[in-house]
Amino acid sequence: MSGDPKNQAAEEDLRLPFDDEAGQGTGKRDLAGLVIAVALFGLAMVIVNDASGYPIRRSYAQFGPEIVPYLVAAGISVMAVITAIMAWRGAFEARDPLNLGALSWLVGGIVIEIFMLYGGTGFIAGSAVLFAFAARAFGQATLLLNLAIGAVLSTLLYLLFRYGLGLSLPAGPVERAIDLLLR
């Protein structure tokens, strides 16, 4: 007997999160999953390589800093093997198409902010650019308006945290001008 199909569907919906694997796998070989497995192996190698370089200590109990890294590296290696098997058998769920354009705007915004902060333009300018790029990533194409809102918001944040909470934020020309005005 196959039972009442409607009832069964309802039961499927209400599955406890840990009842089973997270969802239906694709059943296809998953290249990205294999890349993750390789990356995990690489991480394990890096940890082992690092831990094997620690000087040996002759203390009364030789339980040095290398024990846990070795244990963790072993664990990661096991997980890498399991990940590889999962990817090979297509156990990862189907993924939504990747909006690479949006992602690039977002990552680009953060990278530019990092460069600007290192370059000495100060927090407000860097943060405003990040705001504009991030909003663009979420589909708000009005870059100039985004930039204006970002500048206002960043200035408010700067004032609040610099003068309200005494946080030291990277200063550029704008920040120095504000500091001069308020002094």
Partner: peptide, 22 residues
């Protein structure tokens, strides 16, 4: 879009402010 952009600005502010280094 502005909500998430604001969150990102706040996130970077907190980290730069507390750590003091880019």
């Amino acid at each position: 879009p502005w909500l998430y952009a604001g969150i990102l600005c706040f996130a970077t502010l907190g980290i730069v402010g507390a750590q003091g280094s880019p």
